[in-house]
């Protein structure tokens, strides 16, 4: 336990957070820049992929999930999985709309 806390302190040094923040700001700039180009319907897919990458960074680094035990990780993965299932089922309904 002591080790893990020590590790957590090292992995979550000030600089690690600042690098993550720079990545998040860069990704925001990319989404805004890409939105100006006409990709048709692909634009929503690109926007959602970038948003997912940003969410992954916030979850793993800012919210320390990277260093949590597997029980907690499984919890969150299952919750996100079922949210995605809900969306998939919804669109299987509406694709014949």
């Amino acid at each position: 336990m002591e080790d893990k806390e020590e590790q957590s302190l090292n992995n979550h040094s000030y600089s690690a957070y600042i690098i993550t923040w720079l990545a998040l700001i860069t990704l925001t700039a990319i989404t805004v820049a890409v939105a100006g180009i006409d990709f048709g319907n692909a634009i929503i897919v690109i926007a959602l992929i970038i948003a997912s990458i940003k969410t992954y960074l916030v979850l793993t680094i800012f919210m320390h999930l990277k260093l949590e035990n597997n029980t907690l990780k499984v919890f969150i993965i299952i919750a996100i999985f079922f949210l995605i299932v809900t969306f998939a089922l919804l669109f299987s309904d509406y694709s014949n709309y």
């Binding site: 989404t31 939105a35 634009i43 926007a47 959602l48 948003a51 940003k54 916030v58 919210m63």
Partner: peptide, 20 residues
């Protein structure tokens, strides 16, 4: 954790409302 969750929600709201 709560504050970061609020941030994540905005990460999705932003492209869905402002960039379409």
């Amino acid at each position: 954790l709560y504050w970061h969750l609020v941030d994540i929600i905005w990460i999705f709201l932003f492209p869905l409302f402002y960039l379409i």
